[in-house]
Each structure stands twice: as structure tokens, then as C-alpha cells.
Design a binder for these strands. Structure first.
Lengths: 200, 200, 200, 200
DNA sequence: TATGAATGAGTTTTCATTCAT
DNA sequence: GATGAATGAAAACTCATTCAT
């Protein structure tokens, strides 16, 4: 029938989000998809491959959509706004949970680590590129280590997701983003000072 | 023999750090401790309790040690330094990994979540208190939402730990802390500007 | 394409020789043949039938070739030579392995036993006829129970093959045949004595 | 309770004899023993180890018993008798079947081969020693390659067992042994001729 | 003829946990 | 306190086979 692989991928994503890495068994996935367990092995070879395919799928979709948003982002204020939008959608939809669970699970299944890392890098690149774009031709350009900050942002997203898993009611990151939004206009001046400090 | 519970706790911690949450089975823990699996159930009732006891143990030890350091911390520069020291030790020793794995595992074993959260809160409080301490009686005091930033810092630590699990060779957070250390002196002025913005 | 059945038969033979009876699955056979698993069922109904067809195939080929050789065999010395040639070729090519694996597997799949036996009998007959031919009109004719010795020879081939599977480096049967070849000329006299003993 | 390992070993032996290597699954063994499948893994680690332990067990028992019989064996006539006794008991009890099935199965599970071979060698040694003993200080001593003939005898036993699995009604080997028994007295003279032939 | 997809029952093995001693 | 043994449920994965196309 149509879409078996797609349905398995969707079921795998939903299972990771709701049951966690350890709860994402062949039985759980197939049950959710209303399909036979053996189909996982027929179509993906093993569970690891299905999970990685699922990660590919969400990553590709989200990246395409965010890339578009980035195209329309010019200033630091825009970027903070973009970061907040991404954060809200990803957290609510559980996209980051898929990543954080797969990373946490990679400690158990060590051969999965490199594969997950490979799929994580584009996000770090995306974050770095975003920073580069809005600091390009400004005093901040040389001051901010775009790549390191990119890694830091991804780390922050992952960590916030972990906390959100524990306590979905609290949303302190929301308030932090609001705060950042208010401070963003001042950031230029601050960093200008930073530049002076550096050059002393 | 003496110290059975302690040995099990140590073995549990080591197992989480090296094998991940999913790899932390009764067999793996007991094997590492050189003890009988049944002792886990005799002393802790079930594996979940052992893991929580293990989390209590590391948390208490580290908290005591960091509390001392905080007592000697006065300025923002000091705090950045403290944050960096804690980050380095915790990451290397795998302390944060214990937390991040338990949080990630809580999605699977939902009754563990609240217990882990209970043990995480002191760290958020610690971070918040640290911020409050160095901003006390400064212009930053009202400007920085200490609790939210505390949560953010804990999130950042957790996320950096996840990334570190995937790729221990890279240490971008190290560079970020260096950067923060250089920028710290300027932070006061920046925030002063922030204040002005706010009050407009 | 032409020769689908033939290719499946060849693949089945190769799989038994290399992977053993238990490793000869539909997937393994079809994979080796570069074909679809379902073709096995289309052409042969089930795996058992394919294996029996494969046995038929090798048996027929080899029997034709050996029958020719037997036609040119007249003396005991010739026969020992023939036995050695057959042994060498069959062992190296894995022909006997196909048989020994199918027989061993028949204990698991009991309905296969009679079918395999049916295909084994011609070989016992061949061995018996060979003995009869070279002892015909000699003192040995009544002395040697041709059929029983035929069974014994087939048994010996099968057993040597099993040992060869375990340790292909050793070839004691080679040396035994050499020995038999040297002793063959004496066999006539020996048996004459045997006759005298018998008649006592 | 008492004898769990022993019961599993007995059940494993019985299962191999009746269901063949491929039919000797954890379920089949545990079912026959009336025990939980997991006990196999608790006591033996995996099925392979249980099968090898089972092979050890039968081998040790039989070897001890046959060694005793060999001690009382002096002449070729005795040895033929001994060979026939061993053959009858082993074939009927299925002892050789355990070996032949494990050897045949080793083609599938290649890591089992060396272990089975290790346990087969004592039998080849036993056969060789038996021949050496009865030919010691006779003309046959230098004439018969005891080790090669030992391998040949073991091969013969294995092959006869395979045939017996296919058709337990026929017992041609019985008749061959009877024949050998009648010819044994003549063998000395025959071999004396052989010696003369050799020395020519 | 041929194929990709599908399935239910089976495989080996591991799990958390219990229990008698 | 401690241990070896035991267990039912579940894990990942494979099997022979069928079926619609």
C-alpha cells in the first residue's frame, strides 16, 4: 500500500517524542502505525536506521522552512525574533526532543553517535550562518565567534528541551527570549564597547 | 562487607556515564560493582530508586563544594570564572551526563520525571542565587531575571553535555566561556544602557 | 530471463555448501542468485523442493560422469583408483557436503528424509555395482557382500566429508586411499585365504 | 533446585537426537526439560555453550566406559568385537548423532567448528590408540598407519550414523562388522603378504 | 514470469524482579 | 545482609510463505 515507509517514519517520530528513546521499540512503533513489526526490518533493515531516517525527515522539513525565514532576516532584532519562533514551534512540536533523545540514546548505542552528529551539524551551521548574516559588516563581525555561538545556541535549545520534558508547564526560556528581544537594540552599543575593550 | 550501598551507588553512576540510561541495567550495575544483582533490590527496592539515590549522592557532594566556591564569589568576573570551573569539572567527570541521561530517560519512565525534577531544582536555585549575589545592589539587580537566567544556565550546561557526548573532541563551550570572561567587565556598562532602554 | 530455475538450483547448491543446511534460507538463496525470494515459491513451491531439485541435479550430473569412468574399470586396482578420483573431486567440489547437510537436516524436517534417501540409493547401487563388476568371476564374488560394502563406502564418504568440513586442512583419507592402492594387488591373495577360512 | 544444568544438558542431548541440530532451539530444549528458556542463558550463556557442554558430557561418559573396554582388548579379533559393541551402543543411543548433527551444524555456525573439532580429537586418538595396541609388536605395526585409520574409523561411524538417521531399519554396518569378525583371523596373514609386497 | 510488500510465528537473548536459603 | 536460581515478559530480528500487481 502507499506510504508504508512514511507511516513508519511518522510513527517512529511520534513514539520518540512520547515514549522516549528507550520506549521506542519495534513493537511500539509498529503498534502506533498499525502495522506489522517485521515491516520495520523489511523497509529499514533495523530500528536504528528507521530512527535515523526519521531524524533525516524532520531535519529536512524544518531546515527548509527555517532557511526561508532566515532569508528574510536582516537585523539582530529579526534574528532574536527568528530564534524565538523556531524555539516555540520546535519545542511544542517535539522536534528538539527527537534530537535530544537520540543524542542521549547514543551513549547506549555508540554506533549511532556519529550518525546523529552528522545530522546535527547542519543545525549548528545554520545557527552560525544566521549570526554571521546579521553581524556581517558591523562591529560585531569580528567580535562574535559565530561558530562557537552557533554551537552554544544549539546546546541551549537541547537543554531547554530536556527541561521542558521534565516540566512542560514552566517556560522560562520564553521569558528569556522576551528579555533578549528587549535588549537586542542595545546589543549593538554594548558590543561596540566590547570592541574598544578588546583593542585596548 | 561495608559500604554495599555506596558501592552500588558508585557503580550506578559509572554505568550511566559510560553506558547511558538504557545501558544501566541491574546486571550492568551489579557487574561493575562486583556484586549480586539482587542486592540492588534488597537495598533500593528497584533500579529507579538506586538511580535517584545516585543522583542525590552526586548532587549533594557537588553542591557542597560549589556552595563553598560561591561564598568566595563577589563580582561578575568571579562568577564567570566560577561558571567556567564548574563547567569544566562537571563535564569532564560526567556529572552532567548523569543528569541529562536521567532526564532523557524520564520520558520513558514517566514516574521518574518528578523525582528527577525535584533533584534538579536546587541547581537552578543555585544558579539563580549566584546571579543574584553578584548583581545585588547594582543596576543589574532589577534588570536581570535571575531565576530565568538560572534556568537558562542549567539548560545550557545540559545541552553542552549532550553535545559533548556526541563529540568529546570539540569544546566550543570552553571558548565561549573565555569570551564571556573577556566581555564580563563590559557587561556592567552594557546593562546600564539596558536599564536606560527599559526606563524609556 | 532464461534459466531462472537453473540459477536458483545453482544458488541453492552453493548456499548449502557454504552456509550449511540451516543457513540455506530463501533469502540466502535468492540473494546469491540475485533474484527475488518469491521466485523460489513460484518455481518450486517451497524450499524443500528446491533443495531436492538441487540434489537431483548434482546427482544426475555426477552419476553420468562416474558411470562412464566405471565402464572403463576392470580390476580392483582400477576400482581403488576410481574411488580415489571420485573422492577427490567430490570432496573438493562440495558435492558430498550437499548430501551430508541434507541428511543431517532431515532429522529436523522429517518429511525430507524419505526423499533424500530415494536420491541416495542410486549411489549405494553404483558402489555395489562397481564392486560386483571387479569381483565378477573371481573368488571374491561370493565372499564380498557387495551391497553392504557399497553402503559402507557411501557411509565412509559421508563421514570423511563431515570431518573435512571441520578441518579442511587435514586429508587423512587421501593417505588411506594411497595405502589401499598399494595393498590392492595383495587383496586377491588375502581374500583367497579368507575363502579357505570360510570353507573350513 | 537440584540438577538444573544436568537436566538442561540431558534435554539438549535428547533434542539434538530427535529434532536435529536445527530443531534444537531454546524453546525445544527448555520445553523438553520442563524449564524456563531463560535458564539456558543463566546457566550456559548461550545455546552454543549448552550444546558443547552436552557434547562434553556424553563424550566423557562414553570415553571412560570405552577406555575400560579397550584395556581388556588384546587381539585384532577383540578389537573388531569392541568396534562392533561401540557401534551398536552408540548408534542405538544416538551418541554419534549428537556429533554428526553438531558437525553438520558447524557449517552454519562457523565459530562452533573449532570447538566441536576439539571434542572430536579424543575419539580419533582413541581409535588410533586401539589400533596401535593390537598391532604393537606385530608385522602390522609398521604397515598400518594407525592415525589415518583412526580417522577413517571415526569417519565411518559418522557416515553410518547419517545413513541410520535416514533409514533406521537397515543395518548394513552390522553385517559388515560380522564379516570383519570372520575375516579378522585371516588379517594377520594378509598383512604379512602386504609386508612382503612392500619390501619387494 | 517476476516482484515488492506484507505477515504471523518463530528465533536468540535480555530485562527487571522475586524467592528460597 | 547476601546469594544463586528462577521466571514471565519483552527486546531485536529472521523465517517461510503469500499475495496483489
Amino acid at each position: 500500500m502507499t506510504g508504508t515507509k512514511e507511516r513508519l517514519v511518522e510513527a517512529a517520530l511520534a513514539t520518540i517524542k512520547e515514549e522516549g528513546y528507550g520506549g521506542t521499540t519495534a513493537r511500539a512503533i509498529a503498534g502506533r502505525a498499525g502495522m506489522n513489526q517485521a515491516l520495520i526490518y523489511y523497509h529499514f533493515g533495523d530500528i536504528k536506521n528507521l530512527l535515523l531516517a526519521a531524524l533525516d525527515e524532520t531535519s529536512a522539513k524544518r531546515m527548509a522552512s527555517y532557511e526561508e525565514l532566515l532569508a528574510r532576516t536582516e537585523t539582530i532584532e529579526d534574528l532574536v525574533q527568528l530564534a524565538r519562533d523556531i524555539y516555540r514551534e520546535d519545542l511544542a512540536a517535539g522536534h528538539v526532543t527527537v534530537l535530544s533523545e537520540l543524542i542521549a540514546g547514543s551513549l547506549q548505542h555508540k554506533d549511532m553517535g556519529p550518525e546523529v552528529l552528522k545530522r546535527l551539524r547542519p543545525w549548528i551551521d545554520f545557527a552560525a550562518r544566521s549570526i554571521e548574516k546579521v553581524t556581517k559588516d558591523t562591529a560585531l563581525e569580528t567580535l562574535i565567534p559565530a561558530r562557537d555561538v552557533g554551537v552554544g545556541i544549539v546546546a541551549f535549545y537541547l537543554g531547554v528541551d530536556l527541561l521542558h520534558q521534565l516540566d512542560p508547564s514552566e517556560a522560562p526560556a520564553d521569558r528569556l527570549f522576551d528579555h533578549a528581544a528587549r535588549l537586542a537594540p542595545a546589543l549593538g552599543m554594548v558590543m561596540a564597547f566590547g570592541t574598544i575593550e578588546e583593542e585596548k
